[in-house]
Amino acid sequence: MWLPSLASVWSESAWLRAWRSGIGWRGLVIGALAVAGLWAAVVLDLDPRDLVPGPGGLAQGKEFLSRAFKPALTYEADFVPEGTQPLPFKVLKAVRTTVIFAAAAISLAVLGGLILGSLASTAWWFEDPAGGSTRLRRVFLRSVAPVVYGGTRVLISLMRSVHELLWAVLFLAAFGLSNFAAVIAIAIPYTGTLAKVFAEILDESPREAAAALRAAGASPAQVFLFGLLPQALPDISAYAFYRFECALRSSAVLGFFGYPTLGYYLAASFENLHFGEVWTYLYALIALVLVVDWWSGALRRRFVA
C-alpha cells in the first residue's frame, strides 16, 4: 500500500527532478563544491585582503620576482671562503644528489610495486575452470588467495597513506640523518602507489592470451609472466616513468629536512636572501623535471601507440 505512494512522493521530489535533468545534476555537484569551498575558507580564515602582502613582504616579493630574469651564476655572499667550488658546480652536485635519491628510490619502488601489485591484482588467482580433482587448489583459492590479496591491499594502503616527508620525519627521529633512510622514505609510499596502479593495470589488461597459454598447458606463473605481464608492460613502464618525475620533486623537497638535494641549497640561499641563487636552483629543478617529462612523453608515444 504505502510503497507505491512513497515512490510517487519520491518521483515528485525536487531532488529527483534535479537528478533527472542533466543541468540539475551538474548544478547540484557544483553547488555542493561551492559550499565545501566556502566552508574551507571559513575554517581557514581565508581573507582576500591577506593576499596583498605587507610593505616588507611586498618589497621582498618584488625583489625576489625581479631576480627571475637574473639567476645567479656566482655566489651572492659578500665573503666566499677560499677554495669553495663555483656555484654552477654546486648546483650540478645538488642536481646529481637529487637524481640519485630519486633513481634509487624509484628502482626500489618499481621492484616492490611489481611484487605487491601482482599480489594485489586478481590476475593470478582466477579459478581454473577445469581444475578437476584439485581440492588443494580450491582450498587455496577460497582461503589463502583472499587473505594474501586483502592483506596486500591493506599493506599498500598503509604505505601510501603516510606521505614521504612524514616517513622522512619518522626516519630522521629513528636513525638520524642518513641518505639511505631518505631513499627508503621516498620508496615506501611510492611502492604503495605503484603497486596500486600496477594492480589496476594488470586487472584491466585483456586475459584471452593468458587463457590460451593456460589451455596449452602453461603453469599459472608462466601464464602470468608471458601471457599477462607483456600486455600490461607498456602502461606499467609509462606510469613508473611518470612516478620517477614525481620522485625527483619529492627528492628535491627532502632537502628542506637537511638532505643534500636541491631543496637544501634552495632554502639556504633563500634564508640568506640570495634570490638570484634561489632562481638558479629553481631553474635547475624545473629543467630536470622538464627533461624527464619530455623523455617520458617521447617514450610513451613510441611505446603505447
Binding site: E208, A209, A211, A212, F226, G227, P230, Q231, L233, P234
Partner: peptide
C-alpha cells in the same frame, strides 16, 4: 579471438 599477445 586468436588470443595472441599483441605487443610481442
Amino acid at each position: 579471438d586468436l588470443s595472441l599477445v599483441p605487443n610481442l
